[in-house]
């Protein structure tokens, strides 16, 4: 039974990874850099929650991870739209219009 031990190691590693990403999010230098770093943090969190589900031997955490993954995607899309248009909800399409 090495899984409990390995899962602790993995959790520590993920924490380290989140801290390092936080450095990039604080440092920048550009806004997209920060968005990418924050996205990376939430993906790491999803992984951390799934590792916790293994440690706790409970499937409930899987739903939490799924919701977090969905929210992180929404956040990324909103940030991208904000960078493009300066507003998140303005009714304009995200793509460039096709001629014809």
């Amino acid at each position: 039974m090495i899984t409990p031990f390995v899962s602790v190691v993995v959790l520590v590693g993920i924490t380290l990874s989140i801290l390092l990403s936080a450095y990039r999010a604080l440092r920048g230098p550009t806004i997209p850099d920060r968005v990418v770093a924050l996205d990376n943090i939430s993906i790491n969190l999803v992984a951390a929650i799934i590792v916790i589900s293994i440690r706790a031997q409970s499937a409930l955490y899987i739903d939490v991870a799924l919701v977090l993954a969905i929210l992180s995607f929404l956040g990324t899309v909103a940030a991208a739209k904000y960078l493009l248009r300066g507003k998140v909800i303005d009714g304009s399409p995200l793509h460039t219009r096709r001629p014809g």
């Binding site: 090495i2 899984t3 590693g13 990874s17 990039r24 770093a37």
Partner: peptide, 24 residues
Amino acid sequence: LDALVSVLLLLGLFFLLTGTFGLL
């Protein structure tokens, strides 16, 4: 199963850390 789960977890950690390392 124990070994498989551990290997998968460590592999996942390796890729997560590589991604962060690249980010930095």
